[in-house]
Design a protein around this nucleic acid. Sequence first.
DNA 1: TTATTATTGTCTCACTTTGGAACAATAATA
DNA 2: TATTATTGTTCCAAAGTGAGACAATAATAA
Lengths: 246, 246
Amino acid sequence: MSEQITPLEQNPEGIDFLPGLAMDFVIFGYHQYQLKILLLEYRNTDLFALPGGFVKTHENLNDAARRVLAERTSLTNIYLEQFYTFGDLDRYDQAPMRTIMQAKGLVPTDEHWLLRRFISVGYYALIDFTKAVPTPDPLSDTCTWYDLDNLPGLMLDHTNIVQKALQTLRADLDRKLIGYDSWAAPLLAKTFTMADLQKLYETILGQKLRRSSFQRKMLSLDILDRLEKQYSGGAHKAPYLYQFKQ
Amino acid sequence: MSEQITPLEQNPEGIDFLPGLAMDFVIFGYHQYQLKILLLEYRNTDLFALPGGFVKTHENLNDAARRVLAERTSLTNIYLEQFYTFGDLDRYDQAPMRTIMQAKGLVPTDEHWLLRRFISVGYYALIDFTKAVPTPDPLSDTCTWYDLDNLPGLMLDHTNIVQKALQTLRADLDRKLIGYDSWAAPLLAKTFTMADLQKLYETILGQKLRRSSFQRKMLSLDILDRLEKQYSGGAHKAPYLYQFKQ
DNA sequence: TTATTATTGTCTCACTTTGGAACAATAATA
DNA sequence: TATTATTGTTCCAAAGTGAGACAATAATAA
């Protein structure tokens, strides 16, 4: 984890970064049937924003995404997908960034690189929100999980970015039923019941699924190992535990 | 169609454009069961490349894409989708651009903006190649259709970009069975037979489809109006003609 | 005029997938 | 011992798909 970036105060030109290019992250956090996303808040401004970042001049775009993601969450090896690049002019509004900079004691000179127009590459990630250590960036004061269906108003076009990310995540889930270990495994305990897995799907898709069909489909995919039963303490039959194969 | 861009020779800094940001276009051309893509060639260099372009400082990203597409093909109102943004460092190789600039009589100074690193937003388009007027850009000498399964070697990572575009187009075709008038209609005559429509699908997907299943599915979608029969001159039953509803 | 040929529109049948309910099994509790 | 909630599985009807069959029919050949 390298934080070798020149501090903002000493870097009025943004010289370490590719100019005019940003990344915005929709970091979905799942745990126990809850889906949240990570937002930054700027103190004394009432402004909320998606975590974002910039690309260093000698860094691959996707590596930059992983670096920033690690800075905000302390996590590496995360399921991460690029989903759209946002470049409308109407997302170029200096007002909120001026407010943020002033609240931070920075001087928003007209030429400051943070006030220029940015094209932003959107990424979404999916992690277990209990495993992350949310960390504000140099401009923000808090970095917190918010319930997806109860988000505060967001800066600029960030609400739109969240919508598109969610849409893409759900579509990806439907078809790319591949690579479970890369995305689903980190969101569940090492062993889990079929109900746990189904709830994970239902939470992400935002809709109920049929129990028998879900079980049939999952078992037919040949990705699960069935283990011993789980004596859970509930007044009912004990479910089997599963884990992902290999 | 505005070509208000300062000519390359007088614009060594690329001042009209967002720095470091490019677009690459995979323009699929269909006609009569053939699928081609549009490539630029640079004379005396043996270099082939995808059409590309830059974003003006006061232009929406997607508007820039439509502008460049119109410049290369003379077509507006085209089916156009953004599919991925490419930002690896290994696509930053000055050699081919130096060759191209020298062949054009330009001086590739070390500071020339065209020799800097670019992040590139990839778009794909789908048009009838008989309706386009391919037009080279200021750096290239020819702009020509090439059979998709017989492409020359391409500059930098452009072969990779084509692969990803084709993958996305095919996946989009499978699910977004919606909005036929926006993409399929411009590729067919005003009226067409079921065989014409099936061949269009087969050509794009690169595989045969079952005739009876295809007919059944298309009719069930309720997007076609059946017209009179077509007496085609072939030694067989005359097929019905169809057109897209509304 | 008649037979031949290629293609079309539709149908059939087997097979698979899915939705939805039913049912016995069973771990805890009353 | 009866009750309760949940589980694993089965069943059946409905819907969808793959593969082939078949009659209809324009043009051509005999």
